[in-house]
């Protein structure tokens, strides 16, 4: 019986199969809606990423437009910073537009 390869031997470099870069996929479901994050996929370049996104995320007519973005190009907030980032907004009720009365007859407000 052969021994299992160690994790080091299974790295992409060791197997000769470099992993394709990761891309985030945003799909617009229909005109008038904004693009929504649908998921991610691997692809060697942007053109192939777009084709793969079409095949993986819109094969059941989920969308009319696709954006792909290199996952590495996205700067995300850190879960560790959650308190400092988001909690201060919790008690600032004056930021909500609730302190005035909408005059009668004003539409689309």
């Amino acid at each position: 019986m052969t021994s299992q390869p160690t994790p080091a031997e299974q790295t992409p470099a060791a197997t000769g199969r470099a992993q394709w870069p990761l891309w985030e996929v945003f799909v617009r479901a229909r005109r008038g809606l904004s693009h929504t994050h649908a998921g991610s996929l691997h692809a060697p370049d942007a053109v192939v990423a777009l084709r793969n996104a079409r095949d993986v995320y819109t094969r059941r007519q989920e969308g009319v437009s696709i954006w792909v973005v290199p996952a590495a190009a996205i700067t995300a907030s850190s879960p560790d910073e959650k308190d400092a980032f988001f909690e201060p907004a919790a008690d600032k009720v004056y930021r909500h537009p609730t302190f005035y009365v909408v005059p009668e007859g004003v539409a689309h407000l």
Binding site: L41, H42, R51, N52, D55, V56, R59
Partner: peptide
Amino acid sequence: PEMEEDVALAN
């Protein structure tokens, strides 16, 4: 060769 290409060829 990759999951994405697998889906594409099956499509």
